[in-house]
């Protein structure tokens, strides 16, 4: 067992983990943060994307011990004071999900994208979400959801009514 100290969504945890514990299992099973999903478990589908120190990563392919000392943000950390994050709101408003399994990872990847590129083109959104697979939507409404969030975060206010 190793002892790690991580800050997840602003709260600091000291935990004992086996070195082989994957970050996604630690988040889901030790911290009960089950918003982060396990999809393919082979670092392709992106359902498990969380942020480590501000960068999006696939948490099925990171060891929990590697996150020692890090700040982690999961989907549970986006809403503030009961207010959905613009991305969460965008997925709601634009019907960016059907079954919802990929949604937490999609949103966390989109969050990384919008931090680096606050005003992405449609192509840039599709490129930025390359690491996330959705088997329901055909991606169209996911792209619209990210555009909605970008507009809202940029304060243009154009998108909601279209």
């Amino acid at each position: 067992m190793s002892t790690i100290s991580v800050t997840v969504n602003g709260r600091t945890y000291q935990s004992d983990v086996e070195p082989r514990t994957l970050l996604v299992h630690y988040l889901r099973e030790q911290l009960n943060l089950t918003g982060t999903h396990i999809g393919c478990d082979t670092s392709q589908c992106g359902a498990c994307v969380v942020h480590i120190n501000g960068q999006s990563v696939k948490s099925c392919t990171v060891l929990a011990v590697q996150a020692d000392g890090a700040e982690i943000t999961t989907i549970e950390g986006l809403a503030q004071n009961g207010q959905l994050h613009p991305l969460q709101e965008g997925f709601w408003e634009k019907h960016g999900l059907q079954c919802g399994y990929c949604t937490p990872g999609m949103i966390m990847s989109a969050y990384d994208l919008l931090q680096q590129n606050p005003n992405p083109t449609e192509d840039e959104i599709r490129h930025g979400l390359e690491g996330n697979l959705c088997r329901c939507t055909g991606y169209q409404n996911i792209v619209k959801a990210v555009q909605y969030a970008a507009d809202k975060m940029n304060g243009s206010g154009n998108s909601p009514g279209e």
Binding site: S43, G46, V49, Q55, S56, V57, K58, T61, V62, S109, D112, L113, G128, E130, G131
Partner: peptide
């Protein structure tokens, strides 16, 4: 190479 998450690691 890969995708954003792969390139971050």
């Amino acid at each position: 190479i890969g995708d954003t998450q792969v390139r971050n690691r």
